Computed example of a mutant assay.
Amino acid sequence: MVRPRPGLHDLGVRRTRRLPGRRRRRARAGPRVRNTGTRKGREVVQLYLAPTERGDRPHRWLAGFASVEAGPGQAVETDIAITPRSAEVWRDGWRHIAGEYVLEASHSYAEPRLSTRVVLQKIR
């Protein structure tokens, strides 16, 4: 039995404040997923970061994911944390690379469905 795939809509990016006792901030993104089928459906929403200035980094990489379920015609919000580690590279130790990125939402690496530009601030 094949379940209908929900579609991705409205990629929202939210910033969270620093929590007491925590050293790192997390951004949160949450595309709205709508099931356009007639049966209950499930989708794994994947978020990818793609640097606007590529350099020696990959074209894009997985930054976070979440599994959601939606009934027929139902729209549900996802809530995916994007940690600072998502923008780090190994250069004699992990280093955070601040700057502009494209955040892409999809159900697979090969098919990005939504995108938005985000700026990741430098972490001290």
Rank of each mutant, 00 (worst) to 15 (best):
V2N: 11
V2G: 05
R5L: 15
R5A: 14
R5Q: 15
H9N: 12
G12E: 09
R15Y: 12
T16A: 15
R18G: 15
R18S: 14
G21P: 03
R22C: 12
R22Y: 08
R26G: 07
R28N: 02
R28L: 12
G30Q: 05
P31D: 04
V33A: 11
R34Q: 13
G37R: 03
T38F: 13
T38I: 13
K40D: 15
R42S: 14
Y48K: 03
L49G: 09
L49T: 10
L49I: 08
T52R: 11
D56F: 07
R57D: 09
R57H: 06
R60E: 13
W61H: 10
L62A: 03
G64R: 00
A66Q: 10
S67A: 14
E69K: 03
A70T: 03
A70M: 03
A70K: 00
G73W: 01
Q74S: 10
Q74G: 05
E77P: 00
E77S: 09
T78K: 01
A81K: 01
A81Y: 02
A81I: 00
S86T: 08
A87E: 00
E88G: 02
E88I: 02
E88D: 09
V89L: 04
D92G: 10
D92N: 09
D92F: 07
G93S: 05
R95M: 08
H96T: 07
H96K: 06
I97T: 09
A98D: 06
G99Q: 04
E100F: 04
Y101C: 00
V102E: 15
L103H: 06
E104F: 03
E104Q: 09
H107S: 12
Y109A: 14
E111T: 13
L114K: 08
V119A: 05
L120K: 00
Q121Y: 02
Q121N: 10
K122F: 05
I123M: 06
R124Q: 07
R124D: 11
